[in-house]
Amino acid sequence: MSERTESLRAIDDGDAFEAVADKTMSRRERYRRLFDRWVLAPGRIIRGDVRARIGASILLLYALVGLFGPRLYTEPEVNQGPRSITPLSEGLTHPLGTDNLGRDILAQIIHATPSMLQMIVAGGLFVTVLGVTVGTTAGFSGGRTDRVLSLLTDIVMTIPGLPLIVILAALLEPQDPVVTGLVLTINVWAGLAREIRSQVLSISRHSYVEASQAMGLSTPTIIVKDILPNIMPYVLITFVNAARQVIFASIGLYFLGVLPYDSVVNWGVMIDQAVSGGAMHVMSLAHWLIAPLAAITLLSFGLILFSQGTDRMFNPRVRARHSSTTDTADEPADETTTTTGGGIR
């Protein structure tokens, strides 16, 4: 029965995960393992899957543009070039041409990127934190807390996202990209919370968690040590879902003029101005319309490729959920993957 004492000692050591595999572990070994799990393993996954690789490259491109682009490329200004010229017509001075006010199109694309990324990161973090908190709390505490949180989750999942966002946008008129990001992802956390709750319920039946509880470890410790690593795939997928919703909704609402703006802060604003500037009717203005559409599509494509690639690798369960086919009855709006019927829900 030495094995049991070994594992108990390891749990006491604060490392329930490695308990089964190893008897003693040096601090360095533990750091190496953490590094392996959180850095190397995802890296390998990304390298090993074509989709994930392409997706990651696209995302990296946008991140670089968002971080350094505005410093390297001139700001869009009225009359910085001739009006309404087509791409490459003046060499590389205005590579994507200009709009009807003589503003450089590429400059508009680039300078709208940072706020988009800020919205995405803000929305993604907000959704993740809220979803994980509600999900783990509900799953762990059970009883009345669980019932209330689950009901709340179900209700939020039932409210159609886009109309709610429209109303909130009109109500709050957010200007700051971070606040806008939160508003645009107001309902996304619920899917994650529900997924995490059911994960917690199934994981907490595993022996190592029971062992942790038997050892008298506090609930937060157990959550951090035992539960969180197992729900990483869902977090990742939800982050991507949130990002997609930020893109879809922000472009749409800026395009409609529901979100307020004072300069060209978003590709949706570009589309709006292009449409009202006559780009639909005049072929020589088409670049004005197509440039922001391409920027949106590529980013969204990159996100979904990245998520699908990693989803498949992370999660061997995805294609082996025979039993859970019936779960859809009880979990109707459950969207683990990023493919949806039609965009924002």
Binding site: R244, I247, I251, M280, S300, F301, G343
Partner: peptide, 23 residues
């Protein structure tokens, strides 16, 4: 399919109006 699913539908709408409608 992934590509189609990654475009917001209103963008397909704008493109189709532009191309099939106006042009």
């Amino acid at each position: 399919s992934i590509f189609c699913n990654s475009i917001p539908n209103y963008i397909v709408g704008i493109l189709s109006i532009w191309f099939l409608g106006y042009q």
